[in-house]
Structures are given as structure tokens and as C-alpha cells.
């Protein structure tokens, strides 16, 4: 169902419908995360992916065009590259441990320590919070840096547009 939503979003040409469908896609992804036990990730995806992303997309559409130029051709080199990459990844999955296998290598290293010791070492019952704020606090610091940089970049880009527009308006008023 999620794959179908994604295909529809990518096939449609009206960009408003594309924006709404990509929001739906994020919401379906959030539902999938709940099924896979990742409730914190689901919260974030529903709020940030389905909410803020859609608002940003709609805002961009207001400032730009609503329709994609029709382009029915199938891009053959792109299709070949994508099929090759997909085939290689499919070959890679055959070596992966089965879905939900408790003996998989990913569960053998630090995860047990987090689950058994985080109550004494950090405190909150939610293990994800403990890991995010304490064990991997530097990651979160880096994340904040990235958001800060992105905010500066957006302000630099959009803010400059406004300045140019006011300059144009002023030069238009002169004669």
C-alpha cells in the first residue's frame, strides 16, 4: 500500500496532488514504524515528515509553478541504472539475517547493555530517550548543528530574494 502511494505520488503531474500524496506516504511510513515497535520514530515521522515537510512543499508550490511539464518518455539509461542497483541490493538481502531474528548481528553488541543498564545509568524508562540524550549525545549535538546550518542557508537564500525584489520595485518606481 505504501509502495502504491509512492508510485502514485511519483507518477502524477499535478504538483499539489504530489505534495498531498507524499504526506500520505509519510503517514503510512509512521504507521509501519508503530507496527515495527519504533513508537518514537513514528511520532517524529508523523509530526515532522507528514506535517512540516508537507507544509514546506505547499509553501514552495505557492511560490512556484503548480504543474509539471508533460514528459511521457521513459528515460532508458536511468531505468537501466536503477534496475542494476536494485538487482545488486536484492542480491545483498539474500545474505541478511531473517526479519525479526533475535540472533542477528545487530542485536549482539551494545543493544543489550542499553536495555539492561540504562535504568541505573541514565534513568528514564524510555530507552530511546536514554540513548539519544546520554549514550549518543554527540550525535544529537551534531544534528542540532545541521539544523542550525540549514536554517542559516534557507534564510540566506530566501532573504536575498526578498531584498532583490524590493530593489526591483524601487527601480521600477524611479521613472
Amino acid at each position: 500500500m505504501m509502495a502504491m502511494g509512492a508510485m502514485a505520488a511519483l507518477a502524477l503531474r499535478n504538483l499539489f496532488a504530489v505534495a498531498m500524496l507524499s504526506g500520505t506516504y509519510s503517514l503510512l511510513a509512521a504507521a509501519l514504524y508503530v507496527v515495527l515497535d519504533a513508537v518514537d520514530v513514528a511520532f517524529t515521522e508523523a509530526a515532522v515528515g507528514a506535517g512540516i515537510s508537507t507544509v514546506l512543499l505547499l509553501g514552495t508550490l505557492v511560490l512556484t509553478d503548480h504543474h509539471e511539464k508533460p514528459n511521457g518518455r521513459i528515460h532508458l539509461p536511468a531505468l537501466l541504472i536503477v534496475l542494476a542497483v536494485g538487482g545488486l541490493l536484492f542480491y545483498g538481502t539474500l545474505d541478511m539475517p531473517a526479519f525479526g531474528d533475535p540472533q542477528a548481528p545487530i542485536h549482539q553488541h551494545v543493544a543489550d547493555h542499553y536495555i539492561e543498564e540504562s535504568r541505573e545509568e541514565v534513568g528514564p524508562p524510555n530507552i530511546v530517550t536514554s540513548v539519544l540524550a546520554s549514550y549518543r549525545g554527540y550525535d544529537t549535538l551534531g544534528e542540532t548543528t545541521v539544523i542550525f546550518t540549514a536554517a542559516i542557508g534557507v534564510l540566506a537564500l530566501i532573504g536575498r530574494v526578498r531584498r532583490i525584489r524590493t530593489r526591483d520595485a524601487r527601480s521600477g518606481d524611479d521613472p
Partner: peptide, 28 residues
């Protein structure tokens, strides 16, 4: 396993930041 959850939590927020930057570039 809580570790992938933490990593993806970070990745989602970073992803939205980069999306915002990309859309600002499109507007420009």
C-alpha cells in the same frame, strides 16, 4: 533494538532540514 530507532530519529530531523534547504534553492 533501540539503537536503530535513535539513529533514524536523528536522520528524520536532518532529512527535513535538508529538504527545507533544497526547496529554498528551488524557490531561488
Amino acid at each position: 533494538n533501540p539503537l536503530p530507532h535513535v539513529l533514524i530519529l536523528t536522520a528524520i530531523v536532518v532529512g527535513v532540514a535538508t529538504t527545507a534547504l533544497a526547496l529554498a534553492l528551488v524557490v531561488r
